[in-house]
Amino acid sequence: MRLEPIANPSFARSVVPPALAIAATVVIASLLAMIAGADPFAVLGLIIKGAFGTKFALLETLNRATPLIFTGLAVAVAFRARFWNIGAEAQLYAGALVTVVLGTGALPWPGFALIPTLALGAVLAGALVLLVPAILKTRFGVDEVVTTLLLNFIFLLFISMLLEGPLKDPMGMGWPKSARLIADARLPRMFEGLRLHWGFGLAILCAVAVWVIQTRSTLGYEMRAVGLNRAAAAFAGIPVNRVLVKTALLSGGLAALAGFSEVAGLKGSLTLDLSPGFGYTGIIVAMLALLNPLGVIVTAMFVAGIFVGADSMSRAAAVPTYLADMMLATALLLMVLAIMLTRFRVRRE
C-alpha cells in the first residue's frame, strides 16, 4: 500500500472522510452502550439531552467547556510549531496555585485591579513551568514529550504537598484544600441570573487573540514555519529555538488561565481534583479543531457536551461514564485518519 498526495482535493474528498469518522464514532458508542446492556438510541438521546437539552444543561456544558478552550488553545499553539506540550495539566495547576496564593487575602485590592493581576500572575506561572522543558529541549536536546508528561506528576505532588502544608485551609476540617478566595478575587457572572462566569468570555477572547497572532503576526508565521519544517525554517533565517521558547511561553500561559478561571470563576478554592484531566483532554479538543484556535471554541463545547451529557446519562441508564472518554479517544483516532484521507489517496501496490 502506498500514499499518494492529491493535488486538488474535491469537495467530496474533503467532507466525506471526516463525516464518516463522526458516524463511525457514533456507531461504536452505540455498540458499547449495547454491550453495557442499554438501548443505544436511548443512551445517545440521554447524552444529547443531558448536554444541550435544558438551559441548565447548556450552561453546565459552557462552564465545562471553559477550561477546555484554554487547554485546547495551549495545545493548538504548541502542536502547530510541533512542540509537543503534553503538560497542560501541570501548567493549569500552576495557574490555579498563583490564583489562590495571591487571591486569598495576600493582595487586599478591589476586583478591577486584583482580577487582572491574578490572571497575569497565572499566565507567568504557567509560562515558567513550560519554560523548563522548552529550555531543556533547545539547550540540551531533551525530548519535551517525556519531560512535560513527567512534570505533570511532579507538579501534582508539589500541589498536594502545599495543600497539606502551608496552603492548607485551617477551617477546612482537615481536608487538603486551600482557603477560599476573597470576594474581590472572584470572577463575576457574564449575565445577570445565569450561572456562567467571565472565564468563558476570557476564553473566547483568548481564542480570537491566538487566531490573530497565528494568522496576522510575524510570530505566527514563524511558528507555522518551524512546525512545517525546522531545517527549512532555520535555513530561511528564522531563529528556531527562540520561536520554540516563545511558543512554549504562550502555550504554558494559556493552559494556566484554565486553572485561574476554574478557581476564580467556579470553585473558589484549590483542591487536588480541580482538573479531571483538562490538560490531556485539551489535546483531543485541539486535534479535533485541526489546531485552529477558533475551531477550538466549537470542539471544546462538543467535548464538554459529551462529558456533561455522559454524566447525566450514566445516572439514568446503567452505562459507565467512561463511555464518554472512549467516544472521544475513538473520535480522535478516526479524525486524524480521516484528515489524512482528505489529502492522500491510498493506492494498492
Binding site: 458499547l32 453495557a36 509537543w84 503534553i86 514529550v145 490531556y280 489535546i283 483531543i284 486535534m287 459507565p320 467512561y322 463511555l323 472518554d325 472512549m326 472521544l328 479517544a329 475513538t330 480522535l332 483516532l333 486524524v336
Partner: peptide
C-alpha cells in the same frame, strides 16, 4: 505523538469501562 496519546486514552478508558 497523536496516535500514541489516543491509544493511551482509548486503552485506559476502555479498561475502566
Amino acid at each position: 505523538h497523536v496516535v500514541g496519546l489516543g491509544v493511551t486514552l482509548l486503552a485506559t478508558s476502555s479498561t475502566y469501562f
